[in-house]
């Protein structure tokens, strides 16, 4: 029998230590697939963040570096400039990218660095126990907003695609989700575009992915899928926020 779908060679055999129903694993699988399908696994260098995916260096079957919190875009820049023959991707959570790493992502985008960013937006600090993230929705409960995020004292969420789209630099900015097959297929396409952009020296690409964190949302995995559809996508609309390839045509 021929295998139609199965664990890609771009992932190691290490069993991932994410909670049941966590969206990180779905995105890992897509990246693992692309490393093989685009034949770039041997020259890929991945950057693991600080967050639940801090162990991503054990999960991806390619060279990996795990720098300090939020520094993925800066470290990616250094590697890509020193070794333009490498394919460099930075995998980051919303705490990593939009809190402690805000300066790095903004400047890498402004410089249109030829790197690929995979941004997992689960609206929470997952690893540390569910504290408020810059992406936590207004009214959403977290361990540091127990009555729900109060915009008067805790401010408004940061919409990263919209923020970076205010810059002239970035080549490709898109938001997708991994809560249903239709959205996962769109995520596969977006990530492929973001990978190919780097191979064609197009510059900065970021795919923001709305992703389930059942544990810290206090929901079951099935409820979490639905919460993305019913609540999260309304605040964070899916779609392309920048695609220079289309503007040039």
């Amino acid at each position: 029998m021929k295998q139609l779908f199965g664990r890609p060679q771009g992932l190691t055999d290490v069993l991932q230590r994410y909670c049941p129903g966590c969206g990180h694993g779905i995105v890992h699988r897509i990246i693992g697939d692309l490393l093989v399908k685009l034949d770039i696994r041997e020259r890929a260098v991945g950057i693991a963040p600080v967050g639940c995916s801090v162990f991503a260096d054990e999960y991806f079957n390619c060279d990996m570096i795990q720098p300090p919190h939020g520094r993925g875009p800066a470290v990616s820049t250094g590697i890509k400039r020193a070794r333009p023959d490498c394919f460099v991707f930075s995998y980051q959570g919303d705490g990593d990218l939009a809190a402690i790493g805000t300066a790095e992502i903004v400047h890498a985008a402004a410089r249109n660095e030829n790197i690929t960013i995979i941004f997992i937006n689960n609206a929470i600090f997952g690893m540390t126990g569910g504290q408020l993230a810059p992406t936590t929705l207004p009214g959403m409960r977290s361990t540091t907003s127990v009555q729900g995020r109060d915009i008067k004292t805790q401010g408004y969420p940061i919409k990263v695609c919209e923020l970076l789209a205010g810059l002239d630099g970035p080549h490709y900015l898109v938001r997708t989700a991994v809560n249903a097959p239709k959205n996962i297929i769109a995520t596969e396409k977006a990530l492929k575009t973001a990978f190919v952009n780097q191979l064609e020296n197009k510059g900065f690409s970021m795919v923001e992915i709305l992703s389930m964190c059942p544990t810290n949302w206090g929901l079951t995995p099935i409820q979490s899928k639905k919460w993305i559809d019913d609540t999260m996508i309304k605040y964070y609309p899916l779609g392309e926020y920048r695609n220079r390839a289309k503007e040039e045509r």
């Binding site: 199965g6 779905i26 249903a180 996962i184």
Partner: peptide, 14 residues
């Protein structure tokens, strides 16, 4: 089913 499985713990054959 494979696409949504985070592990992935599913294989599909033909």
């Amino acid at each position: 089913c494979f696409k949504i499985c985070p592990e992935p713990a599913i294989e599909v054959y033909k």
